[in-house]
Simulated assay, not measured.
Amino acid sequence: MNTSTRHDLSDIKLGDWVDRRLPSALRPYTRLARLDRPVGIWLTLFPCWAALIQASHGIPDFRLFIVFSLGALLMRSAGSTVNDIADRKFDGHVERTRFRPLASGQIGVARALIFLVAELALAASLLVFLTPYTRLVAICVLPLVFIYPLCKRFTYWPQAVLGAAFNWGMLMAWSEVHGAISVGALVMWLGAMTWQIGYDTVYAYVDVRDDARLGLKSTALLFGAQGKIIIGLFYGVTVLAWSIGGWMTGMSLPYTIGMLVIAVHLAWQTWRLDLARPEINYRLFLANILTGLLLAAAAFAGTL
């Protein structure tokens, strides 16, 4: 397939800044960590920042802000590396992932594993700045990080596992600031999970034909032609959970207004969704960066 065509669905664009500006030795590691595709970083950071703001009931301590931001970046990168190692034999047969470093042979498994150990070591070094309880909470996410890539082989719900792991920083934020994870914090985290099930299912529809051919599972394959309705329901549960969680964590009226804006934005996404047009679904997946930004902004407004 010509990679310059408009509807090429590869998530790696050859000839981008990685190819133009980085030494060849660094390129596969940059792509392995997804630094060239920062959407996942933002989708991890914004819920984490929102939780820090809610838990701090205002602007969080700058030290915590830096630690949690670096932690989200490193763990998202490590999770991506684990995923690429586990899926290396499938990715080369999927249009969206065919240029990934392991699938295309740019890097071997041994070097990818060494890189993963380095990522995890850097992430672990941040734990010295956190309380013992938060360290324990952080360690508990590791099984989810390693199990997720295997889930698509035996369950149609890998997106749920990913949602739990991706948003784990929200729980850590509350444990660090308050020394406990409140019920309201759990409700916010569950809302982030349903949000991720929704937007990652939109993403999965990009790969649905390749996944079916390879015998892999996803919520997109499970929902089938009813995906638009079911994604809308998950988005509706998200807004409800975040509204209730915000009330339980003491958010003020501006937070509620923020939830209404998010509701409109997610409703627009659902309306625009076209299961038969992967290029539209990919753009709608990217639109959730704005959803995360709106959540963080609503949390800040709710502390005023």
Results as ranks from 00 to 15, higher is better:
residue 164 A to K: 02
residue 173 A to E: 11
residue 157 W to D: 10
residue 163 G to S: 07
residue 162 L to I: 12
residue 175 S to P: 01
residue 177 V to L: 06
residue 173 A to W: 14
residue 174 W to Q: 10
residue 186 L to W: 07
residue 172 M to V: 14
residue 184 G to N: 05
residue 172 M to H: 10
residue 174 W to I: 09
residue 184 G to C: 05
residue 174 W to Y: 15
residue 181 I to T: 07
residue 186 L to Y: 03
residue 177 V to W: 15
residue 186 L to T: 00
residue 166 F to L: 10
residue 163 G to C: 06
residue 156 Y to D: 14
residue 184 G to M: 04
residue 158 P to D: 00
residue 172 M to L: 13
residue 171 L to S: 10
residue 173 A to P: 15
residue 161 V to F: 00
residue 170 M to P: 10
residue 162 L to K: 05
residue 156 Y to H: 15
residue 183 V to L: 12
residue 174 W to A: 14
residue 176 E to P: 12
residue 170 M to S: 12
residue 165 A to F: 03
residue 167 N to Q: 06
residue 169 G to K: 09
residue 159 Q to F: 05
residue 180 A to P: 15
residue 165 A to T: 08
residue 159 Q to V: 08
residue 170 M to K: 08
residue 166 F to Q: 08
residue 161 V to I: 03
residue 162 L to T: 09
residue 159 Q to H: 11
residue 168 W to G: 03
residue 165 A to V: 12
residue 166 F to T: 10
residue 175 S to T: 14
residue 176 E to W: 13
residue 185 A to S: 05
residue 167 N to E: 11
residue 168 W to T: 15
residue 170 M to V: 07
residue 183 V to K: 04
residue 170 M to W: 12
residue 169 G to L: 12
residue 164 A to N: 02
residue 186 L to S: 02
residue 162 L to N: 08
residue 184 G to Y: 00
residue 156 Y to E: 13
residue 186 L to G: 00
residue 165 A to Y: 02
residue 185 A to F: 09
residue 158 P to R: 06
residue 185 A to Q: 01
residue 166 F to Y: 07
residue 183 V to Q: 04
residue 159 Q to K: 03
residue 182 S to L: 03
residue 177 V to K: 04
residue 162 L to W: 01
residue 172 M to A: 11
residue 166 F to N: 09
residue 160 A to P: 04
residue 178 H to Q: 12
residue 157 W to L: 13
residue 179 G to Q: 13
residue 171 L to Q: 05
residue 157 W to H: 13
residue 161 V to K: 01
residue 168 W to V: 14
residue 185 A to K: 05
residue 183 V to A: 06
residue 164 A to F: 02
residue 176 E to N: 15
residue 179 G to S: 10
residue 184 G to K: 01
residue 158 P to T: 03
residue 158 P to M: 02
residue 179 G to R: 04
residue 164 A to R: 02
residue 169 G to R: 07
residue 168 W to H: 04
residue 156 Y to Q: 08
residue 174 W to S: 15
residue 186 L to D: 00
residue 158 P to S: 02
